Amino acid sequence: MKTILHKADTRGFANHGWLKSHHSFSFASYHNPERMSFGALRVLNDDLVQPKMGFGTHPHQNMEIISIPLSGALSHKDNMGNTRAIEVGEVQVMSAGTGLTHSEFNGSKTDEVNFLQLWIVPGEMNVTPNYEQRPFSSEEKNNRLQTVVAPKDKLIGDALPISQQAYVYRTRLDSYKSLSLNAKSINNGFYVFVLEGEVEVANHTLEKRDAIGVSETEHIEIKSISNSELIIVEVPMN
């Protein structure tokens, strides 16, 4: 088993006034050669957008982009005709493929928006761009694994599709509960990101916004120390 620990206070940070962003991996002006990616997981940004502010129209190509609101609502608009708000409890995926443009905006006059954005390197290049979002039941992540993103050829339940053999899971664990995960492939690793609470993974204790990458193993176990909420990303390591 191989592990890499990313404590919350070691992440990159950018303060643009309208946007405060913590970077788990090298992004924009934050460059750390030891944090370029975890397998196919290229970006995990923890963004806080001020009221009436947002990201102007910008392009993406050949990247699987996943947005998960944690508080507030984020308005989305793209060149495929999608104009929607993403709210807490929903997940959005975009397969950028051959290319798309989009913007993201906090339409509230008073409330900040906090959301995670993940970029996963696709397993198939130059696919037709695709956009999907949907709400997921909060109850279905209580003390169990909820799959919110899965490969488009191996969808699980109502998981959203991406062009990579990768999975995104959510879970909310009560104190002293345990959760076991078996890798879908021997080549996959797990990146465990703590939204809230305190857990133990691979003999490491993780607190709010800490993360750990675990690879070269077919199985991991997560033990909650207090009520906790997690995002877990399973990705190919090569």
Rank of each mutant, 00 (worst) to 15 (best):
A73D: 10
H31L: 06
S21C: 03
H58N: 08
S163H: 13
E198H: 08
N203Q: 13
M1C: 01
D9Y: 04
F105A: 03
M125W: 04
V43E: 01
E200Y: 09
E34R: 04
L19A: 00
L145P: 05
I186R: 14
W119H: 01
Y169P: 05
F105S: 03
L195D: 10
A73Y: 15
E216D: 15
K7M: 00
A159T: 07
E140F: 13
A202M: 09
K152W: 10
K152M: 11
T57Y: 10
N62T: 11
S29N: 10
P33E: 06
Y176M: 07
F13M: 01
V43M: 06
V127P: 00
A183M: 15
N142F: 14
M125R: 03
V121C: 01
T3P: 01
F55R: 04
G157V: 10
A166K: 07
Q50L: 11
V168E: 06
G99Y: 08
R11V: 03
Y191I: 07
N62A: 14
L118C: 02
L145A: 01
F13N: 02
T128G: 02
I4P: 00
L160F: 10
S163G: 10
L5N: 00
N203C: 12
V199D: 14
T83P: 10
D210I: 13
M94G: 06
S24N: 04
H22L: 02
A40C: 02
A166D: 04
I225A: 13
